[in-house]
Design a protein around this nucleic acid. Sequence first.
DNA 1: TATGAATGAGTCTTCATTCAT
DNA 2: CATGAATGAAGACTCATTCAT
Lengths: 200, 200, 200, 200
Amino acid sequence: MGSLRQRSGTSRRTRDASDQETQDARTRILDAAERLFAGGGYEATPTAEIARLARVPKGLVFHYFPKKIDVLVALIDERTLVEEAPEVEAVPGDAARSLSRLARRLPLRASPAMRRILFREADTHGSVRDRLGRLNGEIIRRARFALELALPTPRGDAARLEVAAVTFAAVLLHQENLCQLTGHHIDPDAVAELIAHALG
Amino acid sequence: MGSLRQRSGTSRRTRDASDQETQDARTRILDAAERLFAGGGYEATPTAEIARLARVPKGLVFHYFPKKIDVLVALIDERTLVEEAPEVEAVPGDAARSLSRLARRLPLRASPAMRRILFREADTHGSVRDRLGRLNGEIIRRARFALELALPTPRGDAARLEVAAVTFAAVLLHQENLCQLTGHHIDPDAVAELIAHALG
Amino acid sequence: MGSLRQRSGTSRRTRDASDQETQDARTRILDAAERLFAGGGYEATPTAEIARLARVPKGLVFHYFPKKIDVLVALIDERTLVEEAPEVEAVPGDAARSLSRLARRLPLRASPAMRRILFREADTHGSVRDRLGRLNGEIIRRARFALELALPTPRGDAARLEVAAVTFAAVLLHQENLCQLTGHHIDPDAVAELIAHALG
Amino acid sequence: MGSLRQRSGTSRRTRDASDQETQDARTRILDAAERLFAGGGYEATPTAEIARLARVPKGLVFHYFPKKIDVLVALIDERTLVEEAPEVEAVPGDAARSLSRLARRLPLRASPAMRRILFREADTHGSVRDRLGRLNGEIIRRARFALELALPTPRGDAARLEVAAVTFAAVLLHQENLCQLTGHHIDPDAVAELIAHALG
DNA sequence: TATGAATGAGTCTTCATTCAT
DNA sequence: CATGAATGAAGACTCATTCAT
């Protein structure tokens, strides 16, 4: 359950039992919800189950999150981060490797469970959908930027470059989402190479 | 609400053709469920609501579908068809146009509502997930086949061709699913052209 | 628990156990609610308690009355009747006795419990308030009418007659409502006599 | 929110007079409760809402009033005063005007909100009912006294005078309570005149 | 085959009240 | 005195499912 906001200072601790027990109730609730939402889905998870797993009384869940949906929103809000910094990861002159790097490090700071939730609950609440949209946009932006840096100027068709970026983003998100369900696998490096070749 | 299987024998019926009212209860139930599942999701749709929209008594829903999940399964089963016939749509010598044709006619016979359900409820039941997986596989197979036919022999790298097929399938499904949620748009023709160029 | 809509045919029955047991669930629910609302008030009465007293499962209450307030509304609607027929009860020439008769038979068909509810829950729902308002209006109308018939023409001040009617209505309703709480008693006959004297 | 008891000693305080903000917590709590009870009723008002409106922490409400009902009792106790002093307001020789004066100044020191609470929550707690009963009694006593003073001796029937007093009290209380709900209006002066005429 | 009343476990949510700090 | 997290019993309402007719 990788929380995004671990208080600093916790890191040096010897990771003793305090992790499990001492952590404040709100965090434990979110931890539990993260696990359960990822497993069975938002709708199928009773708040009582969240409380039980978090070892807090039922009422406390509503003390922190007046409505059930607020738990999901808080989760998306606090444990999902779409990095929008202009980090440049491009390898000049090597479009394939530039895309590969992007694939290896999606601009999404989130635990595997939170990723599952992000894709699974896109219909459940606008905030989830928004976050997903922003992720999509950011990936496209980065892919575009990486390609711009990687390709020698003057590059060819600008529109084609855009299509390449969009395509690569589609593949990455498809892999995060449906591939997990259908069992198919995609090798992003191979796709990167393909796209680079198309632009080269 | 385009039902897939109401064709055989229906034409000869002497019963009046007032499709809307006279249609048998089972069909009306599925119609209602299709609309509601697509709109609010399976979990959030009460069977009573289905019955109301279908203008049938509540008990009748359970007469035809003993468990609620059976409605969803029947929907997937009867109103979703992944065409696995070896229809060849390739344009020899023109990979881009071959892929474009594939994009224009996904091997999926299903109403827009059913498509939404297919993607949305992938987690809900194995049968949905299976169907989705089969769709994915079929698209890849067709893309591969189309490319094989379109490209001049001897083609280059077989592995690259496979990657191209997978990539194109990813884009098509991504468009069907997440693009509808995030609001992004992809032009499949442009992607087809890009991929063709990569293989050319 | 005097239901207003006793099906005809029930009357001849020998009032055996069927009264208690055979009566349909909806009626038993209303019976229970009538008793409990009159006793502890609407807000303080849980629906579960209604179900228990009615010997029906909890869910059935909501089968008939989707919202708790609907029970109260149904009660007011079905077990409270403000008689608005122009029944004349006046004794020509005897205003006092005319008013006395009115007092003896309020134009309100309702059990004592329902009367308690009517006054007690006036704040709870508009339908209750409306009914109460109509009762008030009807009493005034009748009092006015009775006085008009009773007094010899030409009567004196029409305005005074109106005030008399309003005053008498106030006394009757006050007696129905607050007197029960404060423990005071009013003799309507004496008030009737007083008013008659004022007009005489 | 006219508090009844904040008079003594408050004047000498050196604390700044910013009544609104500085006022002690207990007073603010009662102010909030007065408003909320009058608006939505005692049962429907959560203590948390009282605390919020009073801008005090939830726990403080229970510091001052260990049980929720204590807030209501304190309100009735401190912000409701039935004046039982033998103030004579009669106009000798003019019964109508004597009663009118009584109507104009009920022996009830309470804000409009408190008046609403007094009538509305008569069922909620004995203390409210008692206060209401005492108010009723006091009005009758005053009406009787006023009439005794106003009418020339020897007066006529003592019983009739009593009935007149009771009737007038009924009208006044009816006006305070049900008239506000039903929307009817009564002119106490006209009633006073009517009654005076009856006795005259 | 058709029907809607019946069932009761379960769901979200509320709230008075306590209590450690 | 003051505070707000903690508690858990209770409340309204939902809903899949059963079943007698």
